[in-house]
Nucleic acid binder design. Structure first.
Lengths: 248, 248
DNA sequence: CGTAATATTGATCATGTTCAACGTCGGTGG
DNA sequence: CCACCGACGTTGAACATGATCAATATTACG
């Protein structure tokens, strides 16, 4: 009886995340858990799960750890275009675009399920709620991507970093990774820089400004948000784009 | 016999665009043309087809004209997150996210087909090639959105503007809107500014730099690209993210 | 022709970059 | 145990890209 229970726990973030999109059927949950159990993998920090140019032949669902989607320019400049958190999936576009247009790198140790294309298609075909939830997640990712464009294009550094922290907080909340007003925050200032389009030095100074204003504490890989409301105000943050509310 | 012929012409960009994703069946094309004919609308420059916060209950397919997706911050700062060109569709996510997280505004006079949700679902259900092509288009939009994040986050002004011009050129090409090395370019410097995260003044100077280098001519709403290769080099542009090649 | 919108120019300013050094922490091997 | 090493974080100073402000063309259009 132990493997099912263990894997059930592992799949928790995924189920919580998808359930926030669409009420999953019992059957859908069972199928999903089975698929996850059949495809368990691990990755180490710095390892790429996929690289720009790779053919796409499987879907990954993240069970634990943080990753990022990123692109690199010819001269080495890197831009992180999104973070991938537990419960998120990658490459749901598996049977639509045949080649990766970006890379996916692990920022921490990662546990994920790798579901090959045929198994994934079968999964989608066998439960409507699952199919809708997964598509829905893909659409929310697009919405996040749009907001990142706004964030980098029109917010100044302080707003920009604050906004990213707000987003991560709101995304970690529904998958049960926020403890009170704190969460593990396992990424480096370099990653924040590449995610916000700033330099590391300036991210460092911006974080100090947020600390100085009493909005956050960030130490030893733990982020504490002291004043969420004021942080959101600083960031001009509205959570609407995360589409967390289930459709009417 | 005239309406079918007329509408057939109108639907050309859409068919060409979708055909570039998936080979459409005769039946799919016929159904699509019918749906377009049943939902013809027009919009004037400056008019919003949809506004952030609106409920989503129909899909729009653009037949002619340029639009943009944009978001506005509380204090009025605007960021264009994507351009919508003839053949593109909007809100394919219609039955997934219930509320618009961004606005869609017409930059020029626009002709579009408005397909209500039930008709759209029926359309998708009745032809597999059409369904795949439309989803595929949605995924390409996500890829474009990622590239925009990179563009604004990591390219300097000259590269950034050049990149946008390259993208628009490559996107207009398959829908037959490029004539030699020229195309209609009906948008204002203000729009370029809001799309690149720059100020209007700086966009103006950047365009002059591109003109001075002999890369482009932009006058009277007509863009001519004199040296596409060099423009792409300047922009660090690679068309891979547009996924123009059909899957293997 | 007159008016509003758009484009262009110059000058000043500011946000954020770059460079270079130093500090801190955790691990590792002598 | 401690010295060393590498990764990450922090600091200061000089610099640069691009923003802002304000004025002046130019164009579109009624």
């Amino acid at each position: 009886m132990h493997p099912p229970v263990l894997e059930g726990n592992l799949a928790q973030p995924v189920i919580r995340r998808l359930n926030a999109m669409r009420q999953l059927s019992e059957r859908g949950i069972a199928l999903l858990q089975q698929a996850i159990q059949d495809g368990l993998h691990r990755a180490r920090p710095g390892e790429d799960l996929a690289t720009e140019g790779d053919p796409v032949d499987s879907v990954r669902i993240i069970l634990s750890g943080w990753l990022c989607r990123y692109k690199t320019l010819a001269d080495g400049r890197r831009q992180i275009v999104n973070f991938v958190l537990p419960g998120d999936s990658c490459d749901a576009c598996v049977y639509l675009l045949s080649v990766m247009d970006h890379s996916i790198g692990a920022l921490t140790p990662v546990t994920y399920a790798d579901i090959k294309r045929p198994a994934f298609e079968q999964l989608l075909a066998s439960d409507r709620s699952l199919e809708e939830a997964l598509w829905c997640e893909t659409m929310v990712n697009s919405a996040i991507q749009r907001e990142w464009t706004v964030n980098i294009g029109r917010r100044v550094a302080l707003e920009r970093v604050a906004h990213l922290l707000c987003e991560l907080y709101e995304r970690l909340l529904p998958v049960g990774m926020i403890d009170g007003d704190s969460c593990l925050f396992p990424i480096m200032q370099m990653d924040l820089a590449d995610a916000t389009g700033l330099s590391v030095v300036h991210v460092n100074r911006t974080l100090q400004e947020l600390r100085g204003a009493g909005l956050i504490v960030l130490r030893d890989r733990i982020l504490t948000i002291n004043d969420l409301k004021q942080l959101k105000d600083t960031a001009l943050f509205s959570a609407d784009y995360l589409h967390t509310k289930r459709r009417g």
